[in-house]
Nucleic acid binder design. Structure first.
Lengths: 351, 351
DNA sequence: GTGAAAGCGCTAACAG
DNA sequence: CTGTTAGCGCTTTCAC
């Protein structure tokens, strides 16, 4: 297929139905100029006579010429593409991150390639390695890869990691300790004194931050339990139901909204009323949190901002900014109170 | 940055912190063989002495050599990458399609690049054009591009279109007419005689199919109304509430699940009880349909299969299969009955 | 079975 | 301002 005999000859154009698009040489010949001039007309307008440039572009347009970004990338490294790698694009948690990243990329006239890791670090690694040469920078959102694997990537291309703290790699996180504090304070105000945390994956950096934050926020008056770990999914939340019931807590904080939602469903199926019998708090504020019945009280992370800041950071790294890797950039969170939390009954009775 | 003075010299390896990965030449020199031999050791094992090949691969691994897929793609066109373009990746409708496609791609050792069109045909086109040279095939899911724009893409790379029928382009659709019939029959059995359809975007091929299917399925005993069009989102569904109430129907079929869910929320907010006062049916069976209260009765499309079949089709096109473009491949649907539909009250009273 | 050399489409020095 | 030329990293004839 490659190495057609006559290069720059364009006659075998429609050899198999699939069109070989015109190259810069085809345009050059048609316009009677050198290939480099055509190149300049596209990438360095101003470095070429305005009229010639216009003429070239007109001819190119008419021939249906499209610059081959792949070929351009080889000598320059410029691909105008960025990669956003997520453990699972279909996870609603990533929806707003993706939107934010997408918007920021489009503003800078970059295209964002979304790479799915399928929750599998081997697939993730393979996909990332494959795409690395084609992109100018990489955003890793909830990566399953090891710190060292990520550092290898970061050596090849500007890299930003989300919701994780890795030495020598730029990172952006949400303020989990403060979020945990907000959750505990809210529950405490409602009179709850025994709170159970439903833990997410042990390997998760975020899980550690949330659990620690919760414990630190719980003053002497609050008993903090912990059940799990469970998978960070709706199904995972469902599996925690018996442990939660057994924990005899009047309030639950879940690792994230999915777990909270799964738990609420399972609880309702077991006849536990929410929020009357049990208050539930989630983390992240994914869009579904506002859709379920009752609406889920949750610690809202500025997901969209996280996505767009990540891309802007990448872009400034691409443009040679040094970037700081000493400590993660922390984004503020707030508590969104909905209907899944209510005053503690036991507390009321005591009055 | 490009054109470092000494090519194949690898000494300026750590020139700026960002590592330039070893090339095939670096490996060749280290192994004392020609570059072509290294290349063969990777892509044509068997065409090279087994021992030499092993030795080369060992050295390469030790040096941290990774084949540059971008560079390989230039002469060969082989990138081991496919693109899946969606109007909005974060739309839960695409979740299962993406999963299916992802699985099929991984099985064939391909990587899937997810491209977001941000519901904007210009952005879509720009992104697609940019990525076309880097991928071997393209799946277009709910594309916003014009038929002709899509044909242009299809001329450059094997292309499969989902949920749309375009002359000369392979396409895969779900059986909307049959789905519409199932919905109407179900409602008719429950005693409903007046049904309102909440229409999606007028430009949508799928909307046309669903509305037509509904009308054809409604026999003489059923009155079929139509309101909208509304945007195919939860918010869009909410805007239909007054029209729906005014239509005096006892049952509603929505363009898709999002519209149905948005409508149900708005109805509840207006004090209309579901399913007692109004039955609601959606289309697609996205995961949220089972999460809302009441659970949404919906026409389930085999979304996951659609994704994986699309990728397999692309792969066979890539491998030179002719592919059929005369008529779309149609996938079967079924009705999933949940709690949002119930017997018609008016009907009951009549008995 | 292996090496030498040309070229994929584009860009960037370097002359003029 | 424009043409000439070499080369990005890899593959693939074509000889040996």
């Amino acid at each position: 297929m490659p190495h057609e005999p006559d290069r720059h000859d364009g006659d075998a154009d429609a050899d198999r139905g699939r069109t070989r698009p015109p190259t810069i040489y085809d345009v050059a010949r048609a316009a009677g100029v050198a290939a480099s001039t055509v190149s300049r007309a596209f990438s360095r307008p101003g470095r070429v006579n305005a009229e010639t440039a216009d003429r070239i572009r007109a001819i190119a347009a008419e021939m249906g010429y499209r610059t081959n970004y792949l070929a351009r990338a080889l000598p320059t490294g410029r691909t105008s593409m960025l990669a956003l790698v997520t453990s699972d694009v279909t996870n609603p948690f990533h929806a707003e991150i993706i939107r934010g990243a997408e918007t920021a990329a489009a503003e800078a006239d970059y295209s964002l390639l979304l790479i799915n890791a399928q929750e599998d670090d081997r697939i993730e690694r393979r996909n990332v390695e494959r795409v690395v040469p084609s992109v100018e920078g990489i955003v890793l959102a909830s990566s399953r890869m090891s710190d060292s694997a990520i550092r290898v990537i970061a050596k090849q291309r500007p890299t930003v990691v989300l919701n994780r703290d890795i030495t020598d790699v730029s990172s952006i996180v949400t303020d989990n300790p403060h979020g945990a504090r907000l959750a505990v304070e809210h529950l405490a105000e409602l009179g709850h004194r025994t709170i159970t945390y439903v833990a997410g994956p042990e390997s998760s950096w975020v899980d550690g931050m949330r659990w620690r934050g919760l414990r630190e926020a719980a003053g002497p008056g609050i008993r903090m339990h912990r059940v799990g770990p469970v998978p960070p999914t709706i199904a995972g939340g469902g599996t925690a139901v018996t442990d939660v019931v057994r924990s005899a807590a009047t309030a639950v904080v879940a690792y994230n909204d999915q777990v909270a939602i799964g738990l609420m469903r399972a609880l309702r199926a077991s006849g536990v009323r929410i929020p009357e019998a049990l208050s539930v708090v989630g983390f992240d504020d994914i869009f579904v949190a506002d859709l379920v019945q009752p609406g889920l009280t949750t610690v809202a992370a500025p997901l969209r901002a996280e996505g767009s800041i990540a891309v802007r950071t990448i872009l400034s790294l691409v443009n040679g900014s040094p970037g700081r890797t000493d400590r993660p950039r922390t984004l503020p969170v707030k508590l969104v109170v909905r209907a899944s939390t209510a005053p503690c009954r036991t507390a009321r009775r005591r009055r």
